[in-house]
Design a protein around this nucleic acid. Structure first.
Lengths: 224, 224
DNA sequence: GACTCGTTGGATCGTCGCTCCAATACGCTA
DNA sequence: TAGCGTATTGGAGCGACGATCCAACGAGTC
């Protein structure tokens, strides 16, 4: 083998923000949120810090851009020519599934809500609520409520994924442990939580999320 | 003054987890989330890392304990002998105000939901929903939905506070900037957000939060 | 063929959370 | 009262992080 030149030659496969975000997304998806460091990113891309920072402002920028990408893909992929109510459920489920598949998106949405991803979500939900004939004066509040509910669930998903990432075997074990903990609480001090332990163990996140959406939609229907 | 001994003598004002959490809370409240570092904490308490780590497992532990304290104070302080519906609104508002005053609590609740604080919240909300005669099979979903909504708002509050902490003058300027940005969007691509810009500028977070709670409660009422 | 300038890679910086351990004095026992 | 065990203390130091800075490179332009 020829001796390596004093400096590695200029790469031919041009670096770009897209390529950086793509690599970041892969790392985030396979190894979780805190596995994404600039060092890992440089290794993965066979480059150095300078090259990356030339295309990208900082680490938050990478995370935000990756989030925007995921969300944009969801929002364009959802069928919106269904009846508004069904479309709303579809949008919500689409978001849930995307965040379930990429839990780091959930954390990011709460962390920097002013970036484009949330705008897309607001727009889509607001427009559908309008189609549902929610009165104009209530539209803003209703959209805010629904978006915040989605964000709350998103954050929880991200937290659970983080907990599962290190230790904690798998999800059913995790839930069983939590449920056992709940059911051991003093029924006099914690009657509700104690009773809910069973449902905690058996519940399906996705179905519960949808049940919440339905509750909100029912509440919104009373506004008309 | 006597020359300082080679090592500072054992302190007389005993260090304790309570004192550490108290100092941490002060730092968090006055200087924001990322101002809380162990170095700052040691300076504030006139001690070293070892002393702190003797009383506390790690930094998350400090944050979690501080959060538990704030939430516990809220949950015990709220009047619960009002009609359930009013009590629920009071609990929600109490949480909102606490998180508004201590935004870092909002971030922490999303970050580590399995610690005691959220348990307290679940219990209180679940019990009140039960008093509202929500059917047992729907209780778990309803409580989850309401809690997740609160968590979503809490996360947003935390994010806003973080944004305001550095730069960004004050809240009205921040909102005006965001609203201006929204209203400059293409009305054809973003009809809802474009229209909502005015309300974004003028809205009151607290009132909007309560409007969301009411929507949720109205939805819950349909479950009976 | 010379020059330019958008890219590139990595040495380096300051800060972080945390570990580790020698030193210390409180409170118990005799 | 003297001695001892142990809970507590402070801080040097470690490894990892995000970010900055700059010398070197080569694809395009004329």
């Amino acid at each position: 083998m020829a001796a390596k030149a004093q400096r590695t030659p200029r790469r031919t496969d041009a670096l770009s923000k897209e390529r950086i975000i793509e690599a970041a997304t892969e790392i985030l998806d396979t190894d979780g949120e805190n596995a994404l460091t600039l060092r890992v990113l440089t290794t993965r891309l066979n480059t150095g810090y300078g090259a990356i920072y030339h295309h990208v402002a900082n680490k938050s920028d990478v995370l935000a851009a990756a989030t925007d990408e995921v969300i944009a893909r969801v929002m364009t992929g959802v069928v919106i020519d269904a009846p508004p109510r069904e479309a709303l459920r579809a949008v919500a489920l689409g978001l849930f599934d995307a965040i379930d598949a990429h839990p780091w998106v959930g954390a990011q949405l709460s962390r920097e809500p002013w970036r484009p991803a949330l705008l897309e979500i607001y727009e889509s939900i607001g427009r559908l609520l309008d189609a549902l004939h929610v009165p104009e004066r209530a539209l803003f509040d209703a959209a805010g409520a629904l978006v915040n509910y989605v964000l709350g669930v998103a954050g929880q998903n991200a937290a659970n994924a983080r907990a599962l990432a290190h230790g904690e075997a798998d999800r059913s074990v995790f839930l069983a442990t939590a449920a056992a903990h709940w059911s051991q609480l003093d029924p006099d001090k914690y009657p509700f939580v104690h009773k809910a332990a069973t449902q905690l163990r058996e519940h399906d996140d996705r179905e519960q999320f949808l049940a919440g959406v339905d509750i909100f939609l029912a509440g919104i229907a009373t506004l008309r």
